[in-house]
Design a protein around this nucleic acid. Structure first.
Lengths: 350, 350
DNA sequence: CGATTCCATGGAATCGCTTCCATGGGTGAT
DNA sequence: ATCACCCATGGAAGCGATTCCATGGAATCG
């Protein structure tokens, strides 16, 4: 059992060594698993450490050995379920690799992102996983100049060559649009994310291409650029429904905006899935609890997080992992889940 | 602009001092805002630091000065919106006080909680905010023995005298039960949280007392003990509805269990708020988007987080802040929002 | 004008740990 | 029995900052 130390200050290696009757060097070797130790000293040191309730000082250790055993994870918004799950994925994998995770929340705000990155650099984290925003002009650039291992997750920054794990939004969006068309929707609106983020740009771009490919008319007034936050989803609904020929279906580029959109539709007395079709990017558990349930484009946040952390381990180890794209799939629910008249090929697929 | 250093290694104070043509001591004083510095050296050092893109090494600094500028926040589940918001609150306040926040996720698991606490102690955080579980026998006890500043948030551990900010669940539950009774519900079920957590125990206890106080019959088979996770909410529904005289209303002790409960009710073809009344503890934004919307007991997670962080600052400063209880309120929605026949006093309150 | 005070400064110790290097005893090979 | 080798060990040098203490020049006072 831990001894009667009053706990005034944490025990140091020196004290442990003294108590075990060995040198500091030997004590250090035992405690950090160095092979060149004898059974005898191993036992003595282990006992002393236990008795003194010894916890190595991570600061001192990393000051000397140049790595800290911590990694930083910077996400744009903890309250966004997608990123919360992503964080959980990173964390699980980090723990498995013996890393501690410092989670920072940029609040969809470049300044706060940079402030956090500075803090992470000061903490000398061994690597950083970041879902970046803006261009690489701020702290992201400094990170790279310092040769700190970095992995991008979910988002990227154009022109910055960093391994990334992202979602291939194309298959999910394709299926969604194909479903919508099959169900008779020709005027499809899009509530996009901020064009300062790669996902914001990319999903909008793919949407445009697919609309063209499926020969669906796209009016600029059926596009709304939001900021990935709930309020802008609500605003998007107002804008899109205020047009002369409003869309009959709307795709929203992330779940917080979708929440805002659903809320505003309710306020207008419209029910998504009945009076107007709504498809969300990101599949959040409560979407299926609405009545009718919401169709969504799903991709695994947890898997993305785990993957990013494994990649970061590679970068830290000096390797250069390839970027990865995880698939997205369309989850048809409510009216869209019913068989559509004009798409025999897809129905046969099941 | 930052100079042409290749960024091979981070600049050290020594290099800055050399470039500025002053001693290390002076450079240190300038950079840490010590008053005893001349205008001249202040300018020279600042310039040198900027040119070398100097970032003080937090490890070295805290090795010497015994505080690290980091605090730890340990929550049971990031994916639980309540705790995500709480984390956001803590983080905002921490940032405002110049602290960086290491967020740990215990996953509602005592072992993982203890593993994280060990890591935080190794990192020599200046303080810890924790929503604890279990008794104080594990790492929580060691934390205190080490005299590391600790604040409990949301939950507490009985017998451990640590400042805490918690929710007073009584007013919210009282209003909820009073509303339910006014609307003719006499058989009220309860899906409780794990009895290893203070909130799990407390909410159940208060529920019992209030049922007695309102002269409502309480059957043990209308109580289900879950684990604060979605699956147990679903299980709770099965158990409670499997009784010979099932409850007409159910209160669920947190939002993930509520999500599970709603989901299971759907699967059974029942709609909460219509076929059976359901009231959630924790008010999550999508509750109001269901049809009919879900009534809930609300308390502010963000405020709780901010409050906890302020309290932790007090503890770190050597003060002994008083524990605080934040109020809970009942948000009546759907059928429960309609005026009830038999409660004139409450209706008049508005 | 000489003495006291003040303040910016540099030298050097220190925080707790890791790790290089030299040492010495024990082992296996010849 | 002798030599080479191996391996556990201790001494000591840092890692990069902060901070105490002594110092010397300028400013202030009598």
């Amino acid at each position: 059992m831990p001894t009667s130390r009053t706990g005034q200050h944490a025990a140091t290696l020196k004290e442990v060594a003294a108590r075990a009757g060995v040198s500091q060097a030997t004590a250090s070797r035992v405690l950090s698993g160095h092979p060149a130790t004898s059974e005898a000293s191993r036992l003595r040191v282990a006992a002393a450490a236990r008795e003194l309730d010894f916890q190595p000082n991570a600061q001192a250790r990393s000051l000397r050995s140049a790595h800290t055993g911590t990694v930083g994870l910077l996400i744009p918004d903890v309250r966004n379920t997608f990123f919360a799950e992503l964080a959980q994925g990173v964390e699980q994998e980090a723990l498995a690799h013996g890393y501690v995770n410092i989670l920072g929340n940029a609040n969809e705000n470049v300044r706060q992102q940079d402030a956090y990155l500075e803090a992470l650099m000061r903490q000398r984290v061994d690597g950083v996983i970041i879902a970046p925003q803006g261009d690489g002009s701020g702290a992201v650039g400094r990170l790279l100049r310092r040769r700190i291992p970095v992995v991008f997750v979910d988002r990227t920054v154009t022109g910055i060559p960093v391994p990334a794990v992202t979602t291939d939004s194309e298959p999910g969006l394709r299926e969604a649009i194909s479903h919508l068309r099959a169900h008779g929707h020709h005027r499809i609106g899009f509530i996009a994310g901020p064009q300062t983020t790669s996902t914001g740009r990319e999903r909008l771009e793919i949407f445009r291409q697919l609309m063209a490919e499926y020969h669906l008319p796209l009016r600029e007034e059926h596009l709304f650029i939001g900021d990935f936050q709930p309020a802008s989803g609500a605003l998007g609904i107002d804008e899109l429904l205020g047009t002369t020929r409003p869309p009959t279906a709307i795709i929203s580029a992330d779940s917080p905006m979708t929440a805002g959109a659903v809320s505003r539709l309710h306020a207008r007395g419209l029910r998504p899935g009945r009076d107007i079709e709504l498809v969300a990017f990101d599949d959040i558990d409560w979407f299926s609890l609405l009545d009718p349930p919401l169709s969504a484009i799903a991709h695994s946040a947890t898997e993305m997080g785990r993957c990013a952390m494994r990649m970061l381990c590679d970068v830290i180890a000096g390797r250069t992992p390839n970027s990865r794209m995880l698939p997205s799939t369309f989850v048809a629910r409510g009216p869209l889940a019913a068989a559509a008249p004009a798409t025999p090929s897809e129905s046969e697929a099941y």
